[in-house]
Design a protein around this nucleic acid. Structure first.
Lengths: 207, 207, 207, 207
DNA sequence: GATGAATGAGTTTTCATTCAT
DNA sequence: TATGAATGAAAACTCATTCAT
């Protein structure tokens, strides 16, 4: 009985949280993070003004929780999926997966790394990604043979990757995630991506 | 007579504007753009609250005017100075000059491209830089021989450059502008920078 | 359930609005429209400062809404009540009713047409009344047989009526609404009001 | 020598005051009294901001001085000019002169009695006019034979007169001052104006 | 858990006025 | 006398947050 009730409440709660999250993402994309007010979010979700505070502490809180879930999922997936792969096939696979994920959840990723999101949160995400990359380089899992400062290389790679992703998310044209990753590969390695997407090659690398 | 008077007024005005600009930059670095209030700026500049509005329309306005002046100056300087140079020496020289400029005006550049500035203004600046880079690539002045989408390459380059600069400005360590530019050159071209800074080489490139 | 809740909220809302309206009218009479601040109103109504903006957009808005309700009510009442009457008995009845209404709601009417109100709103009300009068004259319902420009006559009548009312509201002495209307009748028609208020006659008309 | 200098200064002073007065009147007509700022006035007069305060204390001051001069002049002129006239020729002559004056100085009169002026000043002027009229009635100079309350009659007459004037000043059409005074005469006296403007008659009076 | 009216601190912005030259 | 930069008090208005139901 209590079980049943709890489940019913739980489901209602989830529905409310979903509605609030989606409304928040939509509005941030439309008006930019700073311009969105709590009331905008509850109005869009068709909920009372006080309801927001039952679930979240602040505008930053709702966004941070949403983003956290997403990139935790991405990170976990990549760790599990590509555990056996080796450089440079590993980097290529990761990049492909990132562009794919971004395409699947376009609104969310536009908020995560685009100019409409919260500068603070975007910065936090990038710093986190740089940390991951730097650790991978130091371990020799990424870019084995690198002799340059791992932090410098990580900043370089993440800066380029995020900017290219952000541009593509705003204006995807007819570029596929695969093609994005391939071109990125060519720019980064000055070499043709091989064995994975040879068929997708559409232009030749920088001489 | 009027001439003399005008000059006097003009100089007073300039002094006031300088004080406001410097106070704004300092405070943005200390507290972050969003947290800075107009009144903080006038207090720091030791001026009346209304004085700000005599000279600027808003917080965005004062920052935008300051940044505009700076990067217009940089752009003009580069155009004049390196008109005769050719790729890849040209790119190398520009990068050196950018890191030098950033080091000279560190507070301003931290605001321009760092996480404490206004997300909106930082975005505008990067978009502007991407535009310059793309145009240079299309003209064949930058990266002649490139066969990839010029916009993609421009986003890649500016994304990497801005992120590396930003990191370095926050934590310069003992890296010189010259070294920064050299390492960036190695990452971007997969080749040793030659003839300009051979002596500064401290690590070998990515294999 | 929702019904009940809505009613509760609705009643609370109405109470708040009433308190704000009354406070506004009182203060305007005491200090004059321009001198009244939003905060004065909320202080007098014993409400939070922001509460005003939940219900009204501006000082003009609260006054306009209040006035609108009042003269809409008066207009409707007159239309229904005197539908069957004919000139000049009609005019007489209307004037009596107007003076009565003004006496009943003296504070409100002092704000509506007196010098303490908002010049802009007072003007709007008078223009509206002139419009009503002009239409009535054109229809032949008011002043049948008139050969002068209806607009001129309407401006004349409303100008005189409003000024006399305003004076009386500030200094009623022992004049009754009935007497005011009678004297106005004598001035306007150069004739004794007959059959309605013969008994109230206290002075003889202009020769 | 000092004489000469004084004269030169005096003339400059006068020119400055004239420019400020004219600018003030124009702007009040364009934007309404409340919306006009001191700086608007000095800008329009092409003078420095501080200059206003050399000559006037406030916005009310400059307007009041201007209006005062004007209606003092009108009052004096009427007293001198029509000293020998008797009612109802006297009233008719005064009304004609008022409409003429208003037409000659249209912008000024629109500010004096129209809705764009200062509510406070407009009220003061009307109260002053009512006082004049009341005194005239009590003296038996105006409306001899009147048996109604002189104050009531004065309010009635000034209310009607000001409203009709104000309407006409905003929208003169092709009505001459003469015609305005005639129609006003017919409404007020229920009688044809005789001997002055018989030729201008264009419509017949109220039956 | 959901509601929405009420709150009031916080911030921007305006503008009459001063003052040194 | 005229100037215009500087002033700062005053007011409007916003919006995150609370609270009683």
């Amino acid at each position: 009985m209590t079980e049943v009730k709890d489940n019913r409440f739980e489901r209602r709660k989830q529905r409310t949280r979903q509605a609030l999250q989606q409304a928040a993402i939509e509005l941030i994309l439309e008006k930019g993070y700073d311009a969105v007010q709590i009331q905008d979010i509850t109005d869009r979700a068709d909920l009372g003004r006080g309801t927001f505070y039952v679930h979240y502490d602040s505008k930053e809180d709702i966004l941070w929780q949403t983003l956290q879930e997403e990139y935790d999922a991405l990170h976990r997936e990549i760790l599990e999926r590509y555990a056996e792969e080796q450089s440079p096939r590993l980097e290529h696979l990761i990049w492909i997966r990132m562009f794919e994920k971004a395409a699947e959840q376009r609104p969310l990723y536009r908020v995560m790394i685009g100019s409409r999101g919260s500068a603070l949160l975007t910065e936090r995400i990038q710093t986190y990604l740089v940390g991951l990359a730097e650790a991978g380089i130091r371990d020799g899992q990424f870019l084995p043979g690198n002799t340059l400062d791992p932090r410098f290389v990580a900043e370089y790679m993440i800066g380029a990757l995020v900017r290219c992703s952000s541009w593509w998310l705003e204006d995807p044209g007819d570029r596929t995630p695969q093609q994005m990753a391939d071109t990125f590969y060519r720019l980064f390695f000055h070499r043709e991506p091989e064995g994975i997407s040879g068929a997708s090659r559409q232009d030749t690398p920088l001489k």
